[in-house]
């Protein structure tokens, strides 16, 4: 029940909705009645006896007058030893002035005490990512099969963009182990960083490509004969002789094994076997 720690404090008399939400929260379940409002909101003497404003308790409201550091410190009183926040000080979110209550609330009954379902919560700041996730080629974030925290650790760490790995490829290979190789014939940019050709959240182009082939491939591969040719409307299916480098899966119609190959000789070297 949401009463003050120690001597009962009648918080519910004024804050009935807040106490009701707390009582159905994960915090309430975990604490099993052991702690009350004062555990997070601090002593209530002044709030009860003198001035019933947000400034006289530890409030997590925007107009509560507490800095991000103060608000975070209140959470870290209990969670400071959690391994999940061990690297919070390194976090980009910390640098941006965010605190625990930017995303969490002690009154939540959602997983991880989030204020909103995870993707909606992240989109509220990362609006461009929602737009990307809406695109025709996307990871199944919208469908609820992949979540932001599958790849990112919002509490900080050592990966760029707060990813949960030491390199982009290590992260991608967790789900795409078939791309791990190691291959005899390697495609250097593939081995260095998947993001050179792909984007993570969503793309207008199939396979989450940053650009559609053959243009993407030709950005690097200009050579005699077909790699250097312009594949224009003259090579579409509507024309008598479509260009196989242009139609369907364009370069991948032949060079399917762009992630690496163990194929024979020059056929493997060119990723066509």
């Amino acid at each position: 029940p949401a009463t003050g720690a120690g001597a009962p404090v009648p918080c519910a008399d004024c804050h009935d909705q807040a106490t009701a939400s707390f009582n159905s929260s994960y915090h309430a379940k975990a604490w099993k009645g052991a702690n009350g409002c004062q555990s997070c909101h601090g002593p209530t003497d002044q709030h009860l006896n003198k001035e019933q404003s947000k400034q006289t308790i530890i409030s997590f409201s925007k107009d509560g007058g507490r800095s991000a550091k103060e608000r975070a410190a209140q959470c870290l009183t209990c969670h400071g030893s959690s391994n999940h926040v061990a690297f919070w000080e390194t976090s980009k979110h910390k640098s941006a002035g965010m605190a625990c209550d930017s995303c969490h609330t002690g009154h939540s009954n959602l997983p991880k005490n989030l204020k909103k379902p995870q993707s909606e919560l992240c989109y509220s700041c990362h609006k461009d990512i929602r737009s990307q996730a809406n695109r025709q080629s996307h990871h199944p974030i919208r469908e609820g099969k992949v979540s932001c925290s599958d790849c990112h650790d919002p509490h900080g760490g050592f990966g760029n963009k707060m990813i949960k790995a030491d390199s982009v490829n290590e992260l991608c290979f967790k789900c795409h182990a078939d791309k791990r190789g190691p291959y005899m014939w390697e495609h250097p940019p593939v081995e260095e960083n998947c993001m050179i050709c792909h984007t993570a959240h969503g793309s207008n182009h199939t396979k989450l490509l940053t650009r559609k082939g053959p243009n993407l491939c030709q950005s690097c591969h200009d050579w005699t004969q077909h790699p250097g040719g312009p594949y224009t409307a003259a090579g579409n299916f509507t024309e008598p002789t479509p260009a196989k480098q242009m139609i369907a899966r364009n370069c991948l119609n032949c060079h399917n094994n762009v992630h690496g190959s163990n194929g024979p000789g020059v056929r493997g070297l060119r990723f066509v076997r």
């Binding site: 032949c254 060079h255 056929r267 066509v272």
Partner: peptide, 12 residues
Amino acid sequence: GLAPGTTGGSSA
């Protein structure tokens, strides 16, 4: 996809 021949660009 592959090119079932010897030289590049023969067919897909």
